[in-house]
Design a protein around this nucleic acid. Structure first.
Length: 138
DNA sequence: GCCAACGTTGGC
DNA sequence: GCCAACGTTGGC
């Protein structure tokens, strides 16, 4: 079981919209970056991920679960692009901001901190646990 | 709004 | 196949 982080702008696709979809979930479509796509191709049903709001908020707000493995992105006919489906699991008790991640020396290697432009990225078990701790979730 | 980082495109 | 030009993302 692996851990991931999904980035989205609030104006494009927000956590509230994801939550509103409930257990039906939603395609994580629109990704046009090979690295991000490759991460999605390795995802398995049941993997968990953080939901991060980029740009204005810059904070991890919730937890999602992969509910369908990678398939054709329905927003394009281009066969190069596929994506997984995810559903909201729950909100974090307290959002974890990018600043908090940067301040914690244990998260110095986190992709979120180092590669700001990657929209779908892996998170290690250790990083996951630390973020959960920062979120006030035990 | 600016700019750095990075990915993609296209000319050679 | 290299590399310059360009476009996009996202933090500040």
């Amino acid at each position: 079981m692996a851990y991931w982080l999904f980035k989205s702008e609030v104006s494009t696709w927000s956590w509230d919209q994801q939550v509103a979809k409930g257990d039906v979930g939603e395609e994580w479509d629109g990704v046009r970056n090979y690295q991000a796509r490759n991460h999605m191709r390795t995802m398995k049903v049941g993997d968990l991920g953080f939901f991060y709001h980029s740009q204005k908020e810059k904070e991890i707000v919730g937890i999602v679960e992969v509910i369908a493995e990678s398939h054709q992105d329905s927003t394009t006919d281009d066969e190069r692009w596929d994506c997984v489906d995810i559903k909201a699991v729950r909100s974090l008790p307290e959002p974890v901001t990018l600043a908090m991640c940067k301040e914690d020396p244990r998260l110095a290697e986190m992709v979120l901190v180092n590669n700001t432009r990657l929209s779908v990225q892996p998170v290690t078990k250790e990083e996951w646990d630390i973020v959960m701790e920062l979120a006030g979730d035990s």
